[in-house]
Every structure is written in C-alpha cells, then in structure tokens.
Design a protein around this nucleic acid. Sequence first.
DNA 1: AGCAATTCTGCAAGCGGTTACAGTTCAGCA
DNA 2: TGCTGAACTGTAACCGCTTGCAGAATTGCT
Lengths: 348, 348
Amino acid sequence: MSVVEGRKRHPGSVGLRDVAKLAGVSTATVSRAINNPDLVSPELRQRISATIEQLGWVPDGAAKALATRRSYAIGAVFPTLATGDFARATNAVQKELQGLGYTLLLACSEYDAVQELAQVKKFAERGVDGLILVGRAHHPDLYRFLDKHRMPHVFSFVHDGQDEGVCIGPDNRKAMAGLTNYLIEVGHRTIAVLAQSVENNDRAEARLNGIRDALAIQGIAVRPQHMAVGRWTIEEGREMFGAVWDTTPRPTAIVCGNAHLAVGAMIEALARGVDVPGAVSIVSYDDIDIMSHLPVTVTALRVPSDEVGRNAARSVVGMVEQRPLPVIYEHVPELVIRGSSGPPPRPA
Amino acid sequence: MSVVEGRKRHPGSVGLRDVAKLAGVSTATVSRAINNPDLVSPELRQRISATIEQLGWVPDGAAKALATRRSYAIGAVFPTLATGDFARATNAVQKELQGLGYTLLLACSEYDAVQELAQVKKFAERGVDGLILVGRAHHPDLYRFLDKHRMPHVFSFVHDGQDEGVCIGPDNRKAMAGLTNYLIEVGHRTIAVLAQSVENNDRAEARLNGIRDALAIQGIAVRPQHMAVGRWTIEEGREMFGAVWDTTPRPTAIVCGNAHLAVGAMIEALARGVDVPGAVSIVSYDDIDIMSHLPVTVTALRVPSDEVGRNAARSVVGMVEQRPLPVIYEHVPELVIRGSSGPPPRPA
DNA sequence: AGCAATTCTGCAAGCGGTTACAGTTCAGCA
DNA sequence: TGCTGAACTGTAACCGCTTGCAGAATTGCT
C-alpha cells in the first residue's frame, strides 16, 4: 500500500502495472510479452497472459498511442453516406482496415470543403495515422496542412492519371466519355444531360467534362435546354427528365450523372409512356440494384465502390507502414448495357 | 539547448512546451488558455492563441486523452452499411456527434455477434467514451464487458418498452403488428410473409413475432408455404414473391420484412402481370425512396432512421457527460398507405 | 501602510504504456 | 572452476498534456 496514490486513477481499473505486479514481473516484460512475444520466455509469456486474462486487463490505447506515436486509426471523410456508393465504400474501408489492424474514424463533409478541412484537422488531433478523402478538389489549406504534418493520405473515387498524390478510383472523365461514345456509336447526336451539381464535386465536374469531350469530337455540344442540374434523388431525376424532354428538339438520349437521377428519369419516362429505348435512350453513371429490375432495365457504368474502398484502405496503410501492399489504383467502370439504350429513333 | 533531448521526439513537431516557451509562459497556462479561457487573463490568452497560430500547433489527442481519461470519441457498431437505413443512421450519428464535439469510430459486424464483441473490445481499448449498438441481442460476454467497464451505451433500432438498458428506435414487434392489423382491417385473412433471416437479428425476429401476434388474435397463422426467408436484396424479394405466390391457397397479401424485399416483390408482381393491389396487397417494413415512384407505389412503415441515429448519439453523449440532453426514445413508424395495398379480391 | 481576499501563474506529479540501456542468469567451453 | 556471450528481465526516463497546490501579484479595506 503505497503512501502516494495516483492523482485520480480510477479505482476499479487495472493497469499494466497491476498485471506486472500480480504476475511478479516488471511492466517492461508484460509490455514485451504482448508486443514482442519472442523476447519473453514461453513460461513467462504464459503466466502473463493468464494474469491478463484473470484481471481482464484492457490496454489503454491512448497511452499506447502516446508512447508509440502511432494510433492505428485511419480517418475517412466522405461527402455523405446517403448515396449507396459511399456507404458501400465505407463498409469496405472499415472491413479492410480492421483486417489490417486499424480502426476507422468517419466523418461526412456534406460536400462542404470548409467543413472537410475542419474534420481533417480534428482527425489529425485525434492522431490518425492516415486519411482517406474523396475527390481531388479540396480546400487549399487542406493540402498545406497535410503536407506540413506529413500525413499519409489518398484521394478516392478519382483517378486522373496525371494528378499528384495517390488517387484510387475510376477516371470519371474518361469513363463518362466512354459512356457517351457508346451513345454516339449507336447513332445518337442529340444528347441531354442530367448532371449532378458540380459545386464542390470535382467528380461530377469531371464526368460532365467527359461528356463534353466525347461530344466535341463529333462537333456536337449539349444544348442549354438539354442540360439539367440536380443532386441525387429520384424525385429530381423525374423532374429533370421532364425538363429536358419537353424541349425542341427532343433529345434522343439522356446521360445521367448518377444512379438516382437515372432511376428517376427512367421512372418518369415510364410514367409518361415514353418508349425507352425506342424514343429515347437513358444511360447512367454508376449502377445500383434496382436498375436491373425496372420494367426497362437501365444501361449503366458499374463503378466498383467497394473495391475502391478496399484499395484506398490498403493504400493508406501501405503508406503508413511503408510496406508495399498490393493496390489497384485505377478502377475502370464496366459498361453494363441493358434495356434502356439502343439506336435513336428514325427521323419521322 | 538542453543536454538531454527527448528519447525520440519527432524533430519537426511542435508541442505544448514549444508554445509555452515562445509565449513566455508555462505549459499550465497554455493548457488553461485553451480549456478554461476565463482562468487566464485576456492579454495572455491573446498572446497564447497568437503563438499557437504562429506555430501551427495541433494538440495531441492521445496525450490529452491519457491525461483526462476522456477521448471524446464514440464507437458505433452497425450490422452493415449496405442497407440504406443504417447508412442514413450512421450519417446522422456522425453529424450529431460532431455537433456535440465527439468523433465517430465505426465498425460493421456483418450480423456476427462474435465479431461485434471483438469490435466493441477494440473500441474500449481505443478509449471510446460510449457505444452505440444495434438491436438488443448480443453476445453474452458483451453485456458483462460493458458492465465491467462501466461503458455507457445505447441500443438502437429497438424499443421493447420493457428491456433493461437504453433503447432508441421503433418497437419492431408492435410496429409490424400494426402493419398486419391494417391488412386484417381491410379484410385480408390469407397473408404471406417475406421475412428477413432472423439469424443474429432480433429486430427481424421481433417483426416476425409482431406479424404472428396480430394474426393470432384472429386465430390465423401463416401457412408454411406462405413463409419465405431472405436477406435484403431485390433479387431475393423477387424470388420470394414467386415462392409464396405459386402456392395454394394464394395469399391475398404479402408482408415484407424490409424495403428491398418489398421492392423485389413489387417488381416481380409487376413483371408477372399480377394485379396489385387487386389480386394481392404488398406492404413493407421500412420505406425507401423508390417506393413512392414505382408504377404501383408501395405501402410502407416509414422508419425515421436518421432520427434514430440522431437520438442515439444524443443519448450516449448525455450518459457520458451525465447531462440531460433531450432524447426521444421511442420512434413510432408512420404507416404510409400507397397504391400497393387495398381490400382482398372477392372470392371467385 | 498593513493585511486579507482575489486573481493569475508556475511547478511538478501524474495519466498508462514503451523501450533504451543496464543488469542478471546460465549454458558452454577451456 | 573461471570466463564469455546469449538470452532474458528490470529500471526508469520518456510520450505530450492536465491540474492540484502553492506562490506571486494585484486590489480593496481599514
């Protein structure tokens, strides 16, 4: 019974010292028995782990982090989890990190660069070993911050092929150009776009540019009345379909910036009795379950969000541990041609 | 320049001591300037924050956590993020926690109680101040663990009204009984169930029991051939619809255990040209976007997942801080009657 | 001016682990 | 038996921040 008790040590809790005392060894030995078992004789190792078990000791991560300067935590900032792709990616990230011995700290920026910056700083305070971000466009201070603190990080859901920094995901621009080219190849020349707002969303912007690229090669541009902007609800998709459909000339094809807009467009078309793909083709960036089950199934670019998440996780951990984990950087979306697309209608 | 340098202090990093030195005060004062500004004279406070800014100092969370025994982190273990409800809840939890000054640690148990237990232990090591779990059924050791470590925690997406512990969410059983009663009231007596597997899913089980409760009062039971079990894909929903539809007698109504199964059932019915609700009514637990946009809209119980998440977050934080934050514990789902339900067909 | 009450600050001892360095033990060998 | 080195184990100094306690400075009163 020592005279001086810890200042405010929680009475019930057991610490490394308690384990050491009960096992009749030093704290150093207990610590080694856990972290470098082969430095400790098997007999002791055994006795120590029995003691730990007996006391139900749970090591204190904060203390460990403080001493080792490593938290084994990775922070991820996603724009939102309301869209299935990010949710699936988050799920995959967590799973992969867990397998590698890391914990996931999660934040949603709601597409707000300032908030994202604040969240990243918070994560840094929390001592995360690395970060997973989405997209390539961020608050200018963010880059400075990451740089100054030498914080390992990856950008997910993007892959420009020319950007600095580690990018893991599809090349949004190229992918969307490919999708557009497919429409062009089957004969479409009057193409409408239901775009996702590009505000604080460089992926959406890249996708839009991909469409324009592909069209420009044919000397075509998207007419103003054929361009609608929304976010990611079915409702909006429906409205936006109406907006571009009730125009002259009518588009023969509609490219949608994300899955929900596409589903909305498809549903609105069905509701209006518009013949898809007879009168108009509808194609989508990103593929979701429902698309292959609607009365007219939807042609879409399948983006492997979970693979993107998995690889982003592997990548940061690889950077953190300076260990070469196999990582796939570019994830080329697969064009899944379904019922909603085909040649344009013959001119009447 | 002191003779003894820190053992392995990272050279570039600035610490509280650096700030103190540069500002010409003690570390204690700097610390107070941050955490208890009113204990420090305005002048000093000002000088200190300027210094912090100048040095770009980021406090070390691990050290802080170690010293204060508080991490300002909350762990949440969800079964998965693949279903929209948990994804939305997670989003809401994160947002609310952030507003309260906490960080979210996330894990997905994949409906595995053993894994969940391990994840909770990991969170405990990480020093989380509290936990958010889903459902009321967990590994027996989990309760012991939480109890032993006096870990504040809430169970979300459940509310039995009789359980010990804090439960935040809908009363799955009561809700489903209500939905079933609605069908009974409009005249149905031959009811099929597309249930979610109850394995490690007490919510699904409660829902199933709710259906049975309501039917039993009428002296009705679900025929074996009218009971199908799946998980949560549209695909399964379609198959399961087929399984219960191609039976004798045919059900006049189908209750679905979750939204995806319901959408699948609805779509399969449409695909088969089955008249909904003329020949059969389809109703669902949980409501998702697409339901109000299908050619026949789906009657559903709307579960406010984000509200559940928000309140779960508030609740744990309230427990952690022993501060009475207003919390809504029971979230009664709203019955949204749409096109897919109505009276049963007249006997032929 | 003398003294107590108030405010501020600084000192230094923790928080609970890790780990460099030193000490101990003991087998192997001349 | 004496000596050497390998294999373990223990001592104690940190990691970076908080905070009880005490000392210093300032203010208010008599």
